[in-house]
Design a protein around this nucleic acid. Structure first.
Length: 544
DNA sequence: ACACAATGGTACC
DNA sequence: TGGTACCCCTTGTG
């Protein structure tokens, strides 16, 4: 391996450089195996004592190529084409164990690697008895055939002006999708009539963390935001009402600014619940739209609560999780600090925790230790997870946190969906698939991807009734359907990809006939390439 | 083909 | 407890 050597003259009149930064001009052949001075990137060869009379010896800087992760030379981390090479000095980026890198990690080849059978339940208490008696009959013994929505059916490219943070399907209108973004904007998109899309921009000031439909009026939606407010918005008009404002005095610095996360509804009590970044839970009466009771500390004081979920059959049973590395189960009839029924311990921050959608007997958690965990209250023991699946969904401050979600249609409560962080080299393109995993075995059922989607898709939602997946990737939203449906329904209709934002403007300059574009799903794309877009020749104009 | 900015979690003092 | 340095397979823009 060779490294460029730059020689800088010291104290000369001309200030001439002995060498420019040109790669191959003046090259010293360094041995490829490094000596002991691994860390020494800058070598000062200037003489300090002898030659000061006439002229000072030059300083020689050798610009050795160093690893951007550990700053040592001899290896380099980063993309080589569409394959990422890990820094060998770091623990495996996937399973976090030292001694190997992601490329040779056994979990990379098979997601079920290391998944151990669930320990059988050994203890009983009243809660478990209730779960077992009431919910066990709901669980069918036979697994249905899974249908994977694996083809991009339609999309809105650069729909939001910031990255997508949450998605929610309408409870009755099958083709209506709501989306929230980092800026606090709310998107309403009818993906059957792809041009019918709106973005409401004046509801929240920053990150819209969660959306939840009003169970008594599906024309309105609640939103919890990092601006510290809960909103109630009319989807038709975009008119919004604030229910809670935790920062009535405005910005007083980060130590006092409250942000709201995790939004759910206790339908029995008619309560809306949300929690903040300091560990407290808030309740709002949905009839009077006023706060009920005091806030309750449900996670470590000062730590963020990341997600809330009410049990599907027993709304008084609440699941929460947060930055204190715990997911906790609560009885809302007796809710006070420290009164949790169970504390599910994790190694890192827990991004999300959800009861299984049909019976509520299982809990799925996504933790930043790159593990998905399933906790089974009937067949397992809540003292430890019944399944632990190594999966790449690391934290990155620039990405919306990953949340594994259940398939709400799967009666056997086995199928989950979660976006993948690390990329795979697919035919020369670095793509980040969306994974479907069977949590009963840990097996990867499907990894869906599209050569045009080169960005990570941390936000994924499966449709409550149809075989449809919605995914949020960067600022864009994609609708996936099974291949068969895709082919039958799209016959003769190619205009399903809508371009927004800057791309739209640029394209209009060259082709001002329409505001949409078809999208070539064949063809390669590289990691650095933008999605391949081909403008179409007709269509209506509509604002994004 | 670069540089740069945005900015959460954590370990450590 | 608060401050801060460091982590880092991002993404869009200029």
């Amino acid at each position: 391996m060779s490294f460029t050597k730059v020689v800088i003259e010291r104290d000369t009149d001309s200030e001439e450089e002995s060498s420019s930064g040109d790669e191959n001009d003046q090259v010293d052949d360094y041995p490829s195996e490094e000596e002991d001075d691994d860390d020494q990137v800058l070598e000062n060869e200037a003489s300090t004592t002898t030659s000061r009379k006439t002229k000072t010896k030059p300083i020689t800087i050798s610009l050795k190529k160093v690893c951007k992760v550990c700053k040592r030379s001899g290896h380099e981390a980063g993309f080589k084409g569409a394959t990422y090479i890990d820094c060998p000095m770091k623990p495996c980026f996937l399973c976090k164990m030292p001694g190997h890198t992601t490329i040779s990690c056994p979990h990379r080849a098979t997601t079920e690697y290391g998944v151990i059978p669930a320990p059988r339940k050994g203890t009983h208490n009243s809660l478990e008895y209730v779960f077992a008696r009431q919910l066990r009959p709901h669980i069918p013994a036979i697994k249905p055939t899974v249908v994977i929505p694996d083809q991009v059916n339609c999309a809105v490219i650069r729909y939001h002006s910031r990255r997508v943070t949450c998605l929610e399907f309408h409870p009755t209108n099958n083709s209506l999708l709501l989306s929230g973004d980092k800026k606090g904007q709310l998107g309403v998109w009818d993906f059957k009539r792809v041009h019918e899309k709106t973005v409401y921009g004046n509801i929240h000031g920053c990150i819209l963390n969660n959306l939840k439909f009003n169970p008594t009026n599906d024309g309105t939606v609640y939103g919890a935001s990092s601006d510290g407010t809960i909103s109630c918005t009319d989807l038709e008009t975009g008119m919004s009402m604030g229910l809670i404002n935790l920062n009535p005095n405005g910005w007083q610095g980060p130590s006092s600014w409250r942000m709201l996360y995790g939004l759910d509804i206790n339908s029995q009590r008619g309560n809306l619940i949300a929690a903040d970044n300091f560990g407290s839970l808030y309740m709002v009466d949905m009839r009077s739209n006023t706060t009920t009771g005091d806030s309750v500390l449900i996670h470590k004081k000062g730590s963020k609560v990341t997600c809330l979920h009410c049990h599907p059959h027993q709304p008084d049973i609440l699941l929460s999780c947060g930055n204190d590395h715990f997911a906790r189960i609560w009885d809302m009839r007796k809710l006070e600090a420290g009164s949790s029924i169970y504390d599910l311990s994790h190694n890192r921050v827990v991004n999300s925790a959800y009861f299984s959608p049909q019976s509520g007997s299982k809990i799925l958690t996504t933790s930043q230790d790159n593990r998905l965990r399933v906790w089974d209250s009937i067949f397992g023991n809540l003292d430890s997870p019944s399944r632990e699946i190594v999966h790449s969904h690391d934290f990155n401050r620039h990405l919306t946190p990953f949340r594994a979600e259940w398939d709400p249609k799967d009666p056997s409560e086995c199928l989950i969906v979660v976006g993948r962080y690390i990329s795979e080299n697919y035919n020369g393109a670095a793509l980040h698939p969306i994974d479907f995993i069977d949590i009963s075995t840990g097996q990867l059922v499907a990894a869906v991807m599209d050569p045009n989607i080169t960005t990570i898709s941390p936000v994924n939602k499966l449709h409550p009734r149809d075989d449809v997946l919605a995914s949020g990737s960067s600022r864009s939203i994609f609708i996936w359907r099974p291949k068969e449906k895709f082919e039958s329904e799209l016959l003769g209709d190619e205009k399903r990809i809508i371009l927004c934002g800057k791309g739209e403007k640029k394209r209009r300059q060259s082709d001002d006939e329409s505001d949409d574009a078809t999208y070539r799903s064949k063809g390669k794309s590289s990691k650095t390439k933008k999605p391949i877009l081909k403008s179409s020749s007709h269509g209506r104009q509509r604002k994004c």
